[in-house]
Design a protein around this nucleic acid. Structure first.
Lengths: 242, 242
DNA sequence: TTATCTTAATGTCATTCTGACAGAAAGGGG
DNA sequence: CCCCTTTCTGTCAGAATGACATTAAGATAA
């Protein structure tokens, strides 16, 4: 198919970021208000073009996070979610976007950066149910991100990434409940989580109290793959395996 | 960061295909021998550049499969595996590659296409252990593909995609054993697989015999998400959750 | 000081699931 | 008809699961 006259087409590459956190026990996603065309004024995932042809994609993702939301979370672990490149998804021409997923404990409110008129956390429910409209195909990206997060909660220690350095088992449970959208039995959850070797380990005898009995504190253990997995109840719609 | 003079850099986009199948109970991957520079003569995953700026990425993947390996498997389901875009991975310039994964039952030997001097199935073991060297970062892509396939076998009905229209439970077990690289107890496997609702359903009373007792034939059921999942034994190295 | 409230942690129990193994069923080949 | 191979059905103890009760440890109010 390659002929003498033919040369491969050039396209533009962007990165998009799906950053999830928990606020008031509600799953939230980081959104910006676009300050430039197209979709100026609309809500969108933070992201943008590669800076120069030699920039690594993951580096670009970290840079955009810093630029657009002023979240300089160097330690934030970005995981590639997928690449979205349908022709016509961007009026500026042929643009394909590499999406990254990250999970964060509750963070300081982000500040609007250069390209973004505003930046802030938005309820994931509002996005999924269409109460918050997103630019481009970003709704689809968020949807994929949710499903990825839900799935990873089962098999990996991702849930601890939502928590601070130390956390109680009840807090960990709230992560699962918020992301899966279900209610779990605290006693069975307590038992199961403790049984997975290396998932969580006690962090000092220290404790923190608000009203009831003080809870023990834990920290993330060395294990990254959960054995056995914490299977989510069948009820919630998983959108299939595609 | 966007200034008047600045315009986003243009990059070249390729697709790469990781096609797995089972041959003689061994997991195999489709490779081509590159007919053009760079890496001319080396083994590589089938793939290539987008044809024109308006071509959909998934369409390009199907086209390359047809062109390079003459496998016109329209029905083959391609699942996006990841995007690989490290600067310098391709001497021709800034190239990022979108990799797709597919699973196929045993297929006719592929025929070399236009860009490929040769095309054929290669043992995955030979690739993983470095006995078969690959061009670019294709070893990494294959490695990621294996891990994805191993994981999907647990939670999805992917295994049936390795089999023909109808299959015996023993054949299905061979899929799991080949991909996971473990030995399973036939009796427990039989029990578990049958219990997952909608995974497999009986296909006629027909049977097919070679030596022992004739086996019942099954076909893939409607279920795509396995509940409960078939968890793989802890032994095999899963390379972590990254 | 004591009763009460709230949340954390442990316990119980019947049911189901799991892994390891035994044996019966259904053919083919001598 | 006896062996061999492969498929299918049981069995059985130990572990895991889901549903629920009870005790423990503090804060707060009476």
């Amino acid at each position: 198919m390659i002929e003498e006259s033919w040369s491969p087409p050039e396209v533009l590459v962007t990165v998009d970021l799906v950053i999830f956190t928990l606020r008031e026990q509600e799953l939230s996603v980081l959104l910006v208000e676009r300050g430039v065309a197209p979709y100026r004024g609309a809500r969108a995932l933070p992201g943008g073009f590669l800076n120069h042809a030699g920039e690594d994609i993951l580096d670009a993702a970290h840079r955009e996070l810093r630029e657009e939301a002023d979240l300089d979370v160097a330690r934030l672990h970005l995981e590639q979610l997928g690449t979205y490149g349908a022709p016509g998804r961007d009026p500026r021409g042929r643009v394909i976007s590499v999406a990254y997923l990250a999970i964060a404990p509750e963070l300081p409110d982000p500040v609007a950066g250069t390209d973004a008129a505003d930046a802030g956390w938005e309820s994931v429910q509002d996005v999924l149910f269409g109460r918050t409209k997103l630019a481009f195909d970003h709704l689809r990206i968020v949807t994929d991100g949710i499903e990825r997060a839900r799935s990873k909660l089962e098999h990996s220690a991702l849930a601890t990434a939502f928590c601070r350095e130390t956390f109680t088992i009840a807090e960990l449970q709230q992560v699962y409940e918020a992301v899966w959208g279900v209610q779990l039995d605290p006693r069975n959850f307590y038992r199961k989580v403790q049984k997975v070797p290396g998932f969580i380990e006690p962090a000092g005898q220290e404790r923190r109290a608000t009203k009831g009995r003080p809870a023990r504190l834990f920290k993330a253990g060395p294990t990254t793959v959960l054995h056995p997995p914490l299977v989510r109840p069948e009820s919630i719609d998983s959108e299939g395996a595609r």
